[in-house]
Each structure stands twice: as C-alpha cells, then as structure tokens.
Amino acid sequence: MDLERFRERFGDKVKIDKNILTLADKKDLIRVVKFVSKYFDVLYMLIVVHRPPKFELNYIFSRYQDQEIIQIKVEISDKENIASISNVFKSAEWEEREAYDMFGIVFRDHPDLRRILLPEDWPGHPMRKDFVVTEEIKHWTGLDLKF
C-alpha cells in the first residue's frame, strides 16, 4: 500500500519504512488513527514489547477487501499513560484490557478498564521483564473473592 499520503498529511511527525510507521510523539496517536480509519476496517493485533525502561506498542490494522496491512509503532516510558483508541475501532476494547492486565499500561478514556484474564485482586503484572514470583503469589488461593 502506498504510504505517501501519510507523509504528505503529517510531514515529519512520522517515519516510514516499508509498511511500518513510527510516530515521534505519542500525542499524535489519535489524529493518525482517525486518518487510518478511512482506509482500514479493523484493529487486527496489539503487541506490547517491554524493553526496560520503555514500552513499545505495535498496532496492526487490516481490512476486508484485500490483504493489505499497516503497522504503527509508538514508544512510551514505564510510567506514562496513553490515549485509548476504542472510540475509533471497537475491536480494541478487549486488546487494551489485556495490555493493562499483563503490563500495567493505563489507557485514558477507556470505557471499562479492568483485568480480563487474571482475577481482580491478583498482585502484580506478570509479563513485565522485572516480574518476580513472591511468596504472596505462591500462596494465592482466591478463596476470599466474593462473587
């Protein structure tokens, strides 16, 4: 897919390399994603990679009429939060909930941000590279959760 229209529209806020777009600043995310939603239908995958002390988020979008995909990369630091794109793409709701559950990233303006795969009172965020199995986790039984 020809990504020249991104370069015309956004200038030097993006860097293009084959079909990967790298954003220089995380504040432009919503504007770029709204421009993407004119050409692509659905969020395919969201991949979070932890390279301490930064997180690298990869958004992959795809569409139904042919097999084109586009990948957008953003870097944020360990302690920041980032805007949520679930108002533009509805399929991003559960993907962002899983990223919060596993890594601890907080998405602003998400309609329902809570844990999805692990129980609600589980301590820690497991997929980070500095996660250590403590005594509290070894003896966690979940018997005091109310249903």
């Binding site: 239908d41 659905v42 969020l43 395919y44 139904y64 509805k90 399929s91």
Partner: peptide
C-alpha cells in the same frame, strides 16, 4: 449476525 457487526468487531 449482520455485516456491520462483523466489520466492527473483526
């Protein structure tokens, strides 16, 4: 299941 629901949720 309508076409719009399919395209909305992937």
């Amino acid at each position: 299941l309508t076409r719009d629901t399919v395209k909305k949720y992937g």
